[in-house]
Design a protein around this nucleic acid. Structure first.
Length: 666
DNA sequence: AATTATAAAGTCTGTTATTCA
DNA sequence: ACTGAATAACAGACTTTATAA
């Protein structure tokens, strides 16, 4: 994320105080300070109360983000609109009209907006050089204004520079060191912020706002929190030396107990993090592992969207600045525009990621019409909307009577913003298109391949299956899900554990058809006595490689579907939607048990059992699509899966160092 | 001259501690 | 006592650059 070039001394035209007036709470700069912090001049409160947070990406001059494909992003579909249901004063925050008004509205809006634990700003004067926000507040706002409720450190920097007037001219390296340091410091210090491991190569972690911490009061500082519970072990060992001394212990924990604790803890996290107790949160946030730090990391998660280098580059690209409103907007709020944004984000993401063929996404978007901006919660997604109040949209495919619903969950309720569920499939179609921006690659593979491998014991290789592809009109549904960034692993393991079934995953889109098709099918061969099929499709990967494999697997599954007798196929098209009952479990499942009576004439032998993992592995490798490590055991216990997720991963990235996959591609 | 591998330097990121208001 | 800003020190991860083979 490139910083805004700065060609001048870090002089804030608005504010160059020397000493903090009695009524002013912004800190005095240290005498030796030359890092862009408020410079000393005099004790004058700035007369010019230019808005502190200007959020250029939010300004009315923001271009319309007509992403494409007939999806018109309403102007100012951004932070303004996304928060409008919460507080109209958000706008006031952005465009204060007076000092008093500004501070009042700022305080109110921001507190209301983010549920900040910050105490109301009672002073009418600036608390800091940039306004009444603390660093933590600004960070929170930055994060919450992002579509996915997460930002990298660099993006937070960028947001500061772009959105906070005070920092506008302090983006250069000379003047930014100080406040950037403070940003980092605040991120680390406050338990409000969670660091989510970004497995993108060379990418820094995502920073998210812990929805729970500080919700009902002042957000505790991390240190205070870390002093109890499990961190007692290092309580008395502060400082560098102590830190080093604890390395051994930490290493041990990382290598063993953490996996176990993750496993056990994940089992506790079948629900939304927002519903967790503080103890659980502590437990959860104890899965931290950046360079011996255990302060804030929720490791093992990846956001495929922004972790994608191409997208990151695009984000860094100034030329794409007009898109910033979208990039920083939050579709989490329940507004039509945000839903549209979410879709747009998805489209953008997918396009940028090449995660979805252009024609596919184009068709998809071209054929989407939001016929209901915010319907009552749809029946088909009752399990979701009952808990989340998600927005439901309907999309219709021209030339087809079919329609599906887009479900845009609200933030913090069911999946992070950007989550879109496409449900209510037409009778003749079912599928899922899964967007899980925060799911790790290995998670995807874990969830997909292991499941797939356990589903099918057909004796076809992938190539065989692909060769069987037919070109007739196909129908598929797309389910857009979005795994909780925090809980993608959890959701995976939980899903697996809670449904001792195995998933079939597939994804397919017939380029010749505007409809999306796919249906994954597989016998419920494990435990359920009720014959059932359920499909879980994935389109969530940021990597071409992964998508490649996903497509192949999709095709494979699609071909498997073709093997079904027509009645079965049709039944398969009538999957009912169900969903794991939590934000964390945002991995949506289409459980078709009740809808898929397996016909007696269906020969399950070809599918019953386990698809030799070697087949998939070999085929995938032959396709040169993946750079993965495969766990050798196609079927693992949930504990194993969890452990693998937390350590080596059944399909771990090449970067994984722990554990020892039995097979690693050269 | 081009390629590759390696090391060093620099940068970024993240944590912790301290001081001050 | 607590919060928050400011600052520094430190360390790991990563990137860039220089050098050698």
């Amino acid at each position: 994320m490139a910083e805004v070039p700065h060609n001048d001394i870090d002089i804030d035209p608005d504010f160059e105080p020397q000493k903090r007036p009695r009524s002013c709470t912004w800190p005095l700069p240290r005498p030796e300070s030359n890092t862009g912090k408020p410079d000393s001049n005099d004790d004058i409160i700035p007369e010019d109360e230019e808005d502190y947070v200007t959020a250029p990406s939010i300004s009315s001059s923001t271009p319309v983000n007509n992403v494409n494909g007939g999806i018109t992003i309403p102007q100012n579909t951004n932070n303004l609109s996304e928060h409008q249901t919460i507080s109209a004063t958000k706008e006031e925050v952005l465009t204060p009209t007076s000092k008093e008004e500004t501070h009042a509205s700022q305080t109110h809006a921001f507190t209301a907006l983010n549920g900040l634990a910050s105490q109301p700003r009672k002073s009418s004067t600036r608390r800091n050089a940039w306004g009444n926000y603390s660093y933590a507040d600004l960070i929170t706002q930055a994060i919450e204004s992002s579509p996915d409720q997460r930002l990298t450190l660099a993006q937070i920097y960028d947001w500061m520079v772009r959105s906070v007037t005070y920092f506008k001219d302090k983006g250069d390296s000379n003047s930014s060191a100080g406040w950037k340091n403070s940003i980092r410091h605040n991120l680390s210090l406050h338990s409000r912020f969670m660091r989510v491991h970004n497995e993108g190569t060379g990418k820094s972690s995502w920073w998210m706002v812990n929805p729970e911490v500080g919700k009902s009061g002042k957000a505790p500082r991390r240190r205070a929190v870390s002093m109890d519970n499990s961190n007692k072990l290092i309580k008395g060992a502060r400082g560098r030396a102590a830190k080093k001394a604890s390395l051994g212990l930490q290493t041990f924990q990382d290598g063993s107990s953490e996996s176990l604790s993750l496993s056990s803890s994940l089992s506790k996290w079948t629900g939304s993090p927002t519903s967790r107790s503080s103890d659980e949160l502590d437990t959860w946030t104890d899965f931290r592992s950046r360079t011996n730090s255990n302060a804030s990391t929720v490791s093992g998660r990846l956001s495929p969207i922004l972790a994608n280098p191409e997208l990151d580059e695009s984000l860094d690209d100034d030329s794409i600045a007009p898109l910033s409103p979208m990039l920083y907007s939050s579709p989490s709020r329940l507004s039509p525009s945000t839903a549209t944004l979410g879709l747009g984000d998805m489209a953008l993401t997918m396009n940028l990621n090449d995660g979805l063929p252009d024609h596919l996404m184009g068709d998809f978007l071209d054929n989407i019409s939001l016929t209901a901006s915010q319907q009552p919660q749809g029946q088909e997604v009752e399990s979701i909307t009952n808990q989340t109040g998600s927005s439901v949209f309907t999309y219709t495919c021209p030339g087809s009577s079919s329609s599906s619903s887009l479900v845009v969950p609200s933030s913090g309720s069911f999946g992070p913003p950007g989550t879109i569920f496409l449900l209510s499939p037409p009778p003749s179609s079912v599928a899922s298109l899964r967007q899980s921006p925060m799911q790790t690659i290995q998670e995807n593979h874990q969830a997909s391949f292991s499941c797939l491998s356990s589903r099918f014991n057909n004796h076809h290789t992938l190539q065989d299956l692909m060769n069987l592809e037919t070109h007739g009109s196909q129908v598929s549904d797309v389910m857009l899900t979005h795994s909780d960034p925090m809980m993608s692993q959890a959701s995976t393991s939980v899903t697996l554990s809670q449904n001792s079934q195995r998933n079939a995953m597939l994804l397919r889109k017939d380029p010749m058809s505007s409809s999306i098709r796919d249906c994954a099918a597989g016998p419920n061969s494990q435990t359920s006595s009720v014959p059932g099929w359920w499909a879980q499709a994935g389109l969530s990967t940021p990597d071409n490689e992964v998508l490649c494999s996903s497509n192949e697997l999709s095709q494979q599954a699609n071909q498997l579907l073709q093997h079904l007798p027509s009645p079965s196929r049709n039944s398969c098209m009538q999957l009912g939607g169900s969903c794991t009952n939590s934000r964390s479990g945002s991995l949506l499942q289409l459980n078709a048990q009740d809808h898929f009576p397996i016909p007696a004439d269906l020969d399950l032998e070809g599918f019953n059992g386990i698809l030799d993992c070697d087949i998939i592995r070999n085929e995938l490798m032959d396709a040169d699509c993946l750079g993965l490590c495969f766990d050798h055991s196609p079927l693992r216990s949930d504990t194993q899966i969890t452990n693998n997720l937390s350590t080596a991963g059944g399909f771990s990235s090449s970067k994984q160092t722990s554990s020892s996959p039995s097979w690693v591609p050269s």
